[in-house]
């Protein structure tokens, strides 16, 4: 059996254990609630975490690219990027897979599986950086977009654009 088949065969076990390990990165009182199997909209973090983990494990059973892996892991990382995690803590949940893998794979396969986990971790880190960039961009531009743009449209304020600034530098 190749690696993908072993993952497929043990999908439920991997998903359950990975989900539990991810939810346990939250404070104990919170993990109790997020770990509940409740309505998706009453527990958005728990449900999105579970769905994303299922999707990623599904993907591992098929052919995938670095790009599709990044898109698939996005929802879970997008949430963790705005929570009280450091960058390392935000993506650390991926490495729980290595521990889970130890029970499933023999010595020959484990290195291959670990490399797979490394690629998931890199995808998660890429996505984390993108989410943070989006946050900083929103932070930098939202009030300008909201209020300044309305004023500009009305001609109540005028601001030098990039061209003007470069022009004044020359003169």
């Amino acid at each position: 059996m190749d690696l993908k088949q072993i993952v497929k065969k043990n999908k439920k076990k991997i998903v359950d254990q990975w989900f539990k390990a991810t939810i346990e990165t939250y404070p104990a009182n919170t993990a109790k609630i997020l770990g509940k199997d409740s309505n998706k909209f009453d527990n958005p973090v728990g449900s999105t975490t579970r769905e994303t983990i299922e999707d990623v494990v599904d993907l591992l059973c098929r052919e995938f690219t670095a790009e599709s892996l990044e898109t698939t892991i996005d929802p879970i990382v997008r949430i963790r990027a705005v929570q009280a995690f450091t960058a390392a803590e935000a993506v650390s949940f991926v490495f729980a897979l290595k521990r889970i893998g130890e029970e499933l794979f023999d010595a020959d396969r484990i290195r291959e599986f670990d490399r797979l986990v490394d690629s998931i971790a890199l995808a998660a880190f890429n996505r984390y950086s993108k989410c943070k960039e989006e946050i900083y961009l929103l932070k930098a531009t939202e009030s300008k977009r909201r209020i300044h743009r309305a004023f500009e449209r009305a001609g109540l304020v005028a601001e030098l654009n990039e061209e003007d600034l470069l022009g004044s530098k020359k003169s």
Partner: peptide
Amino acid sequence: GENIELRMAGALPRATA
């Protein structure tokens, strides 16, 4: 603007729906 991470986290339940 400065508390945007709080705002985005708080907005998650609305965004999920």
